[in-house]
Write a protein that binds this DNA or RNA. Structure first.
Lengths: 249, 249
DNA sequence: CGAACATTTGACGCGACTCAATAAGCGTGG
DNA sequence: CCACGCTTATTGAGTCGCGTCAAATGTTCG
């Protein structure tokens, strides 16, 4: 996460989502962490006192599906995975959240999804009750949240197309494009795409098994559209070709 | 759609979503149609003039994926299907909308999904620009829309679990439970579940083919958890057993 | 009644899953 | 620096659920 000296803040929130309101979290004492464009302590007096800074180690459970939805989190660094599960243990990851994203948009009374730290994570935690009260008192926050939730919904629809209709290879190609796209928007390294999550997490997100994910990577590499730099980094040789593969053309 | 003499309105909006604000559409001259709890002409003066009443025949295209998102629709009767498609024609239906639902929640500049009339449809149409302006001026509308969008997002996550991890039989069982649930909430016939859509529309929604949908119905019937009353009506013999099948237990 | 369309059923093939073995990463300690 | 053990990733062989293609049956409506 890069510190912008000119703006005196860290810059890893997504620019598309947070075009106007650069922010930081006053409860993170040592450093000023970008929390989310939706939440601006300057425009919104008293906001900073609502949150506390929390950390999670990779693999740690942040909240469980079906548990009371007491908290809203704003990711400041690291990656969080949201997931739903069936009684027999089959699991579907519904999304990965990066710095600038909010955890809990789809929850009301109980958590719609479980959340797990994919990497080490830092986040700002808000009591949902107070968060919602504050939101109702500050319409600009509510407007911003509505936009973010609508964007999430749109992304969920894309993922439904992926899960319902795409082949394994198309899914993995689409996933790489998603990651590259998000990285570019967050202004971090986008071409050798970094994969912060393990194969299992990717498989859970794409509705596949780890073996099929692995074979799909190999297949894409043999096609020549990507090169495996390492297990956790993929060079996209041709963006256009990868897009064609992802869309089944 | 039943007319409630006491409340002087039609009652097919979903009670869960529209708990407090019974409404009707002043532009529907002959009858007072419930449009959506979020949109109340009494609390919100001038609102009625924003919309016009439109009709679509079954099978008609309401709007196309990727086209400019000029309109927001509020369904007053019938069923609308939202879908996304790949260049080669593979199609995924992302949701079915019934009376009381809004079309266009996930769209911003262009339509995130295409929309098609599954049955004959009546709806109220709003110019998106004016709708959003009005929304910004009336926070209660925005609050309601945020809730509706969050609910949609939660439903989308459930569907991702279905598409990514459930077997064909589990998907069809889940689908029947969804329909029964919505019918109950809309206070219309819920046990012999009515299927207003064709097998192809069901298949597109569940990420299957029509043949597999058909075989799954037959399979569930042979299991004894449902009975096919007709092509468009299914009796649920045991709700609990059907739930067990849907969850893979 | 009959044509057009929708649904069901059957036979078969393929893509992704399962199970199993091998290889690659990675931290630890000698 | 390398040896060792543990975790994670890749590759291979075989199976199975769902897709494909084809035919039969049911439904709708002029």
């Amino acid at each position: 996460m890069a510190y912008d000296q000119a703006q005196r803040r860290y810059c890893d929130s997504e620019e598309r989502r947070c075009p106007a309101l650069p922010t930081h979290c006053a409860t993170c004492h040592a450093r000023q962490l970008s929390i989310c464009g939706a939440l601006d302590q300057y425009d919104l007096p008293g906001f900073a006192t609502l949150s506390s800074h929390v950390r999670f180690r990779a693999g740690q459970t942040i909240c469980e599906e079906g548990a009371p939805a007491d908290w809203v989190f704003s990711v400041t660094s690291g990656v969080i995975g949201l997931h739903k599960a069936l009684p027999d243990g089959r699991r579907q990851t519904t999304g990965f959240l990066f710095a600038g994203d909010l955890v809990g948009l789809s929850s009301r009374i109980v958590n719609a999804c479980g959340a797990e730290a994919i990497t080490d994570v830092e986040a700002c935690r808000f009591a949902r009750r107070r968060f919602e009260t504050y939101m109702n008192e500050h319409q600009e926050v509510e407007t911003r949240l509505l936009r973010m939730t609508a964007d999430e919904l749109s992304a969920a629809h894309d993922q439904m197309l992926l899960l319902g209709r795409k082949t394994a290879r198309e899914r993995v190609a689409s996933f790489l494009l998603q990651l590259a796209d998000r990285a570019a928007r967050r202004r971090v390294q986008a071409n050798p795409v970094l994969l912060p999550m393990k194969r299992l997490a990717i498989a859970d997100y794409l509705g596949l098994t780890i073996e099929t994910v692995s074979r799909s990577f190999t297949g894409l590499a043999r096609l020549g559209v990507i090169e495996m730099v390492s297990v956790g980094a993929v060079r996209i040789v041709s963006m256009a070709d990868l897009r064609d593969v992802a869309e089944g053309r």
